[in-house]
């Protein structure tokens, strides 16, 4: 009897703690560059943001070569000469939701949040803060955030001849629907 109680306590505990972690069921990470001659926009659906409810940690990793462009050649140039994805395959953001304790994850509601952390891309790590909306709806967390990145911060060089085609600052958008992580 004791055994069973303890065993179920172990199982329940680990289940409960896993439920503190939410992972994206679907996510869309995109960036947009607006320059004089052309607009570039690319989208990736492979990155899966994760939120730890208890600590307010927000993390996401995305493969550079998962970004899809309108033109295949753009994607090739992006990977080969700009972000050099063979050397730096991922962009990683690790941050914390500010005032996480004020968010009640058990009730439906929408919060304007500030996420502070750092972003690693192209071998460079820089502090980044982003504002966004966090919506709790039933068993799901919806994330919607937009922030700017300076290419120069990550040593992504744009030759002067391409300045009319590529903006020095790009808008990054993250939209995701997160669900509690199930025990594997």
């Amino acid at each position: 009897m004791k055994k069973i109680v303890l065993l179920s306590a172990v199982v329940l505990f680990s289940l409960a703690s896993k439920a503190q972690i939410f992972m994206a069921k679907s996510a869309e990470i995109s960036f947009f560059s607006e320059a004089r001659l052309e607009n570039i926009d690319a989208k990736s659906v492979t990155g899966k943001p994760i939120i730890s409810v208890k600590s307010g940690a927000f993390e996401v990793q995305v493969s550079m070569n998962s970004f899809k462009f309108k033109s295949g050649l753009m994607g090739e140039h992006f990977n080969e000469t700009y972000v050099e994805s063979h050397k730096y395959p991922h962009a990683i953001f690790k941050g914390k939701i500010k005032d996480n304790d004020k968010i009640d994850y058990t009730k439906d509601g929408t919060y304007d949040v500030l996420v502070e952390g750092n972003m690693t891309m192209h071998g460079e790590t820089k502090d980044v803060s982003a504002t966004g909306k966090l919506t709790i709806k039933g068993n799901q967390i919806l994330v919607d955030s937009k922030f700017k990145l300076k290419l120069a911060d990550y040593k992504i060089e744009v030759p002067t001849s391409k300045l009319a085609n590529i903006a020095e600052e790009v808008d990054v958008t993250i939209k995701a629907t997160l669900e509690p992580l199930k025990n594997k």
């Binding site: 703690s17 972690i21 395959p89």
Partner: peptide
Amino acid sequence: KLVFAFVIGITSSAIAQEEDLLALVNEPEV
């Protein structure tokens, strides 16, 4: 033994939660 397992259970889930969130993601193999 059970207490031991219990402790392991707590620590491992705590570690997974605090330090290695990204390891939980099954992103397509690069």
